[in-house]
Design a protein around this nucleic acid. Structure first.
Lengths: 195, 195
DNA sequence: ATGGGTATATGATTTGAATCATAAAAATAC
DNA sequence: GTATTTTTATGATTCAAATCATATACCCAT
């Protein structure tokens, strides 16, 4: 996250998006650094047949869609606002100037990318060598680790949303969660998943 | 990749590993930056039942296992030499000093990480919403993009290695590659995959 | 409160990749 | 030059998750 005064100094513009609006689409050339001031953004892939895979959710303060800037790549996913959002747009060249003049920001950026990298590597592992229950549990623990509560964490997601985030079908998620309940890996209280 | 004279200036030591030796294990604390001078290294995850998922192969010049350095994380995978290998080890603190004093190297490093990041994001997508053929093709194109040749790229992997890298079974890989040949997405010349 | 939409639930069926079994070709070791 | 291992190959079978088909509980608007 780049401080507001600095990003504005380098020529960023603040753009308003209404909810459910695309910010960029998979396959497009990456020309801007995007940083969410307020709102919520979802990044995802979609097949022709309508199958969706969610790469991540972003909230206030997060930047997103940066990797393709570092090598003239196309966006590997589509970004969409979920609610009305204000987003800073910084042209690619200005972004690089900024990193050059602010080594501390560059280092923070690298740290953030590396953290995401580790998470992606974990996901890759889960998906190919562990069963659905494991995958769901990894997601839930990841969410819990990002929450403030340390016990009795009420998962703020519907089965459908868990389905989108794991790439599993809703029915599979429902059945897997029941299995996990039986092994006491989690509890279902008033239909809510708790751990 | 950090030039040899520079990495040595910052106090790196060159360590010799015989083949099939672990360099670090999943779950261990990350304390060094590793850069392969000569040899081959495999990074992978292993389940209790022996299922393996390969996160990546590394060859001369490549660095590996860097992300956990940027935040005191544990290694998310295990690294193993495949052949006798010479590896530069640079202590974490010296690595950060080096990045600070060589912004150009820092930027190159970020570019490399971002490229890997895009690849991991693609993998996550492939695995959950695309069929095996698509997944294999993504791997092969990634390898090609890292090679010097721009056409007639001979894939330097056996079906078994492709299997390990994609998490698919060998038989599935063989059948998928034949399918891809039929659609002219690639060619099989003298048993080698070419694209 | 009534109706429409969404979320949860569960059984039946299909499907595609894993698994199992086997063999031949190629590479490597002896 | 022969034996052994690895790689490629293919068919048969199994299995787990996707898909299909319903049903019911819950939420929310009018």
């Amino acid at each position: 996250m780049i401080p507001e005064n600095i990003i504005l100094n380098f020529g960023a513009t603040l753009k308003q998006y209404s909810k459910e609006r695309p910010i960029f689409n998979e396959g497009e050339q990456a020309d801007f650094y995007y940083q969410l001031k307020t709102g919520h953004v979802k990044m995802f892939n979609l097949t022709e047949e309508g199958k969706e895979f969610v790469q991540g959710f972003f909230e206030s303060g997060n930047s997103f869609g940066e990797p393709p800037l570092f090598g003239d790549f196309k966006y590997p996913a589509t970004a969409l606002t979920l609610v009305d959002s204000d987003i800073y747009l910084l042209p690619k060249a200005a972004f690089f100037d900024l990193l050059k003049l602010h080594p501390d920001i560059h280092l923070n950026f690298t740290k953030m990318i590396c953290k995401r990298m580790i998470y992606k590597a974990k996901i890759a592992r889960e998906v190919s060598i562990y069963p659905p229950e494991h995958r769901i549990l990894t997601l839930l623990h990841h969410l819990k680790s990002n929450a403030k509560v340390t016990h009795h964490f009420e998962v703020p997601l519907t089965r459908q949303q868990i389905s989108e985030l794991t790439g599993l079908r809703v029915e599979t998620v429902i059945r897997a969660i029941k299995k996990l309940e039986k092994t006491n890996a989690l509890a279902i209280i008033d239909r809510k998943v708790v751990l």
